[in-house]
């Protein structure tokens, strides 16, 4: 099985054009599990790990936008400048797997897999991030909401590589919380990202629907309140409204009823954290 290790983005995209059935790999933390379980049978593999452009990140204070290359691992987002710029992403990154997984797993891989339980995804949704895609002859950028189109399904075309994400910073509080049935290294049963920008609340949910859910009704309700003075009953009502927008299922990890309940509780608590901060 040939494995190509291109050292530039253009090399990678032309390899992909030459080998249209090739599989892309970055950290391999989803990819290799699928190979081991025989759910994936790659014949050609293109590794994106050695492409300098995809490992870059930068914080553009002037425009207020953070760019994160697709190959940047969680370990880089957990702390330091990126964490200061995007605290919710840092909190999400810290919940991912174990230190080993966070050293290898990347944001590009999380987007490539596009699981509703992917921990970076509610953050990208709440922060209105956009995803950059590139093929050998074209480049395009999609808002996250158009990128994720279903459980483990995204709008990336077969000849495209995810090159990175652009994430506008917020001028208000942002945070992430995730329920799992153990205190670390666990797949999300329900998760919520809440961000406040220009005194406007945005909220996105993970693991409670086929895609990440932005709660537009709950958002417009809360944004019609005075969010500088959130009392408990408003926070609880907000949580209830968030719950109602979730579309969870029963599976072996949890029940729909619990998930619906949990996102409501998390939304209430995050709103309280965000507005009391």
């Amino acid at each position: 099985m040939p494995v190509f290790i291109p050292s530039s983005l253009s090399e990678a995209t032309s390899l992909l054009a030459e080998h249209p059935t090739a599989h892309l790999i970055t950290g391999g933390t989803d990819f290799m599990v699928e190979v081991n379980f025989n759910h994936r049978h790659p014949e050609t593999v293109i590794s994106l790990r050695k492409i300098p452009d995809m490992q870059l990140w930068n914080i553009d204070k002037a425009s207020g936008v953070v760019f994160i290359g697709a190959s940047v691992p969680y370990a880089t987002m957990e702390q330091g400048e990126l964490a200061d710029a995007l605290p919710a992403l840092a909190e999400a990154a810290r919940t991912v797997g174990s230190p080993q997984i966070r050293a290898a797993g990347s944001i590009g891989g999380n987007l490539g897999t596009c699981s509703p339980a992917g921990d970076s995804l509610p953050v990208l949704a709440a922060l209105n991030a956009s995803v950059h895609l590139r093929s050998s002859d074209a480049e395009r950028t999609l808002p996250f909401s158009e990128f994720m189109i279903g459980p483990k399904r995204n709008a990336k075309k077969p000849d495209e590589v995810i090159t990175g994400v652009s994430i506008p910073m917020t001028n208000g509080w942002q945070g992430y919380a995730k329920v799992g049935v153990r205190n670390a290294m666990v797949i999300s049963v329900a998760s919520v990202c809440l961000a406040i920008h220009d005194k406007t609340v945005r909220v996105a949910l993970g693991s409670v629907g086929p895609t990440i859910i932005r709660c537009s009704d709950a958002e417009s309700w809360i944004n019609s309140q005075d969010i500088t003075a959130i009392d408990d009953s408003v926070a609880v009502e907000f949580g209830n409204r968030v719950s109602q927008e979730s579309r969870p299922i029963d599976d072996h990890r949890s029940t729909a009823e619990y998930r619906r309940h949990a996102v409501g509780v998390l939304a209430t608590r995050l709103l309280q954290r965000g507005t009391n901060a």
Binding site: T95, A177, K178, N183, A184, V186, L266, R269, Q272
Partner: peptide, 16 residues
């Protein structure tokens, strides 16, 4: 935060 129920998921605050 890691000492609270929910651990790294940061689901709870002291008062919960």
């Amino acid at each position: 935060e890691l000492d609270l129920p929910g651990g790294s998921g940061r689901t709870a605050d002291r008062r919960h």
